[in-house]
């Protein structure tokens, strides 16, 4: 049956062609290449999360700036990023991978008592930070931060405070405020929300059992503040933020409330100095692109670039602070 044979031959040829293409792709995506050719950014959060955004903005900046040929983002969600950290720690010596990290991951490391820490990575750079704000709905009885602190100190259980995940940056800021304001940290009634959207809605909701005070990054609240539905009582930042008429914690006499939400990039441990320098250079070029500047502005980040050794020292110091804080919180 010649016709069957023809069909069979064509089929095998087709499969062979597919397989060759696929293997080429696999070989290309595999390790063992220069970071300039193919770079992997690990976002230790699900698609749509804050770290995912950093990774994807970075990917975009590297692409449009022709800094790296192919950049792929891999999402490894879970447990405040520590699952991604565990995977990164296993990629020893791979100079073609970087992972997004930030304040929340240090909290996650401290909280899970994980054996793997930032010591098991090669710090590359801190990129940007954004600032936490304390907001209340427009009809809230708290006109000023002092109104809130008075009511809070009188009966902490009656003033539920909302924010992101338990042990996350919002929770830690709540703990710092409690310490500074003389409220016993263990009496703080903190309600964790799945995201900024849920928190905002909980603030706006008139239903019973929702929170009356919210802590989150300014970006989550910005538009509702502009429209007058939310009021910012205070910002956790060294200086006042453009466009918000609210005092800083230092102005309020609570300078010890100072946690900022920074994001950075780390590479696996055990990479060569040359690889480390190359990654650092890639990041320097990335943050210089117009695409990155737009991303910073759009997401209301504030640039806070530090590299290499400086970043490493910063990480050690920050981890120590956060460990102490979380211990206080009983987390």
């Amino acid at each position: 049956m010649p016709r069957r044979r023809v069909v069979a031959t064509l089929g095998i040829l087709l499969v062979a062609a597919l397989a060759v293409t696929a293997f080429t792709d696999a070989a290309r995506s595999g390790e063992g290449q220069a970071a300039r050719a193919s770079l992997t950014l690990i976002a230790p959060a699900a698609a749509g999360g804050g770290w995912d955004l950093v990774a994807r903005e970075g990917q975009q900046a590297m692409r449009t700036g022709n800094i790296v040929n192919t950049v792929q983002v891999v999402n490894i969600p879970g447990a405040a990023g520590t699952i991604g950290l565990n995977q990164l720690a296993g990629l020893t010596g791979q100079g073609t991978t970087m992972m997004v990290t930030g304040t929340v991951m240090l909290g996650g490391i401290s909280q899970s008592g994980s054996a793997i820490s930032m010591q098991d990575t090669t710090p590359i750079a801190r990129l940007a930070e954004d600032f936490e704000v304390i907001a209340v709905p427009a009809e809230s009885p708290f006109r000023t931060f002092d109104d809130f602190v008075q009511a809070w100190a009188a009966n902490p259980a009656a003033v539920p405070i909302g924010g992101g995940s338990a042990g996350g940056i919002d929770h830690m800021v709540a703990a710092q405020m409690a310490q500074a304001a003389g409220v016993p940290v263990e009496t703080v009634q903190y309600t964790a929300h799945a995201g900024g959207g849920e928190l905002t809605l909980s603030l706006l909701s008139t239903a019973a059992g929702t929170v009356g005070v919210g802590i989150s990054g300014y970006n989550d609240f910005a538009d509702l503040v502009d429209s007058g539905q939310l009021r910012v009582l205070a910002v956790v930042a060294p200086e006042r933020l453009a466009g918000i008429d609210a005092p800083t914690m230092t102005e309020l006499g609570l300078p010890e409330v100072d946690l900022v939400n920074w994001r950075g990039l780390v590479a696996p441990q055990g990479i060569t100095d040359a690889q480390r320098t190359e990654l650092e250079q890639i990041v320097r070029e990335m943050v210089a692109t117009e695409s990155w500047s737009e991303a910073v502005e759009r997401n209301r980040w504030v640039r806070s670039e530090i590299y290499g050794e400086d970043f490493e020292e910063f990480l050690v110091e920050e981890q120590g602070r956060i460990d102490a804080l979380l211990e206080e919180l009983g987390l």
């Binding site: 699900a46 749509g48 999360g49 995201g195 809605l201 502009d226 429209s227 539905q229």
Partner: peptide, 27 residues
């Protein structure tokens, strides 16, 4: 209308909108 990303998809859409200078919300 509210600028509330109530799901991961919505959060991504929000990022995309902001890319074009759109800030979802009451305004």
């Amino acid at each position: 209308a509210l600028g509330l990303p109530t799901s991961a998809t919505a959060a991504l859409l929000l990022a995309a909108f902001q890319q074009y200078g759109l800030q979802p919300g009451p305004l």
